[in-house]
Design a protein around this nucleic acid. Sequence first.
DNA 1: CACCAGGACGGCG
DNA 2: CGCCGTCATGGT
Length: 293
Amino acid sequence: MTAPGSQFPTAATFALEHLDLRTMLAGGQAFRWQVASCGTTATGVVAGNLWEVRWSPPRFTVHCLSPQRLPESAQVFATWYFDLERDYRQVFAQLAQDEHLQPLLQPKRGLRLLRQEWFEVMVSFVLSANNHIARISRSVELLAARYGTPFSAAGKTCFAFPTPTQLAQATAQDLRKYCNTGYRDRYLMDLALQVSQSLPAWNQSATTATGELRTWLLELPGVGPKVADCILLFGFGRWDVFPVDTWVRKAVQLAYFPDQPPFSDQKLRAFALERFGPLAGFAQQVLFEAIRR
DNA sequence: CACCAGGACGGCG
DNA sequence: CGCCGTCATGGT
């Protein structure tokens, strides 16, 4: 389907065995999706466009609601963003070889990791420190409305997530006052400044090794080990990381070392990387979802 | 109304 | 290094 005003097809349909929109879109990896209470449709702004998705098994449909802005076909976008070329059957089969993880997998078959835009992920997870998912979502939306580029779609005004340069215009005062960022205001401002002044390096980071990218991220204000790993996982598609937060800490300890004294985050990370290797990031997401319910 | 939230940071021993 | 108090704000 090619909508008037668009030179690209604005809808695409895919066949999937499993999918859980709530977990995938509102589980704490992305913050701009609104999932309907039925759990079968959702809308969200991604990459400067408004999208609607539908899940009616086994069909996953993606529809662009701002066709005049679409820079590529909906199929190309969705294949990348929703990571549709990855063989999730094989991912689950591989992880099922772990006897401690195996019983947790079946309820999480609908879980997927998104390939989000890295700057939005940086900002979202700097906000995530000592914060609630609901409040993070609200701040992200307020940031977009105040500093992002507006566009109209589906009869309303939407806002692209601000670029580093756009967000660098912000003052700490306004971030705190209007975007509800709390004490993270200065982190965000300095983050936007730093990133906007080194954009070429970040844009070429696709070829950078995960370890090196991680050390770059750790130099950014408000980015510690956990946030850096989330940015790598959700924003740069690196699955060879294992973000350790309060939930995963409990989950790993409970599933693997129930009668041992608490491990340090460093030890937990090393354990997981050794055990799950290139699937560590996805294993983390399974553990996170399993313990959080 | 305490307590906690997908932690990071700075200061201290 | 590792440990500890602090940080702004609202959901539960």
